[in-house]
Amino acid sequence: MGQQSNQTQGLVGTKSAVFIMALLPLAKLLLNALQDNLGANPIEKITHVTGFWTLTFLLICLTATPLRKLSGWFWPIRVRRMLGLFVFFYACLHFLTYLILDQFFDWSAIWADIAKRPYITIGFTALVCLLPLAVTSNDKITRKIGGKNWRRLHSLIYPIAIAGVIHFIWLVKKDLTIPLIFAGILTVLLTARLILRR
């Protein structure tokens, strides 16, 4: 993977590897779908898988800065933007699954969900908040708005991550094991940030 390399060539290799790995969950999902291997309730499965990977990439994304500070490596920061865009990518797939496969454009039901179901309200809010972060994830706009403003805007990722985990906690029927694992990892990552900032 060329983790140690700070050279351009090494970075291109790292970025390509991360890009391909980040597409693997989607590839597996598509393969299972083509083989009719998604179980009795495929729509529910797709919803759960895309949601799981949205949160997973979000947590991976949040490890970049602590990893950079602890290891001295530079590459985590260089792949952070791509990982962030994959968070947005899987979040969009998750939302499109809900919009098209689950609700099939039943706007009144969707609106009622967003207004009345706290787990959907918070999940939808998190998605909307991801939008400006995705739009400003390129050098041109970053230069235009300035590094300070960019950092201020992108600190939205912390409340988004918290909202994403709460969305998961609120939606499960009874077994909180997996959402609480996400909550635990997020707590560790946010705490690490506070400690390392000093």
Partner: peptide, 19 residues
Amino acid sequence: VDHPRWSQAKERRIGEFLK
């Protein structure tokens, strides 16, 4: 009467697409 966290107005019949 909805479940406090989700609607009970519709259901997905296993094997069908539209609720």
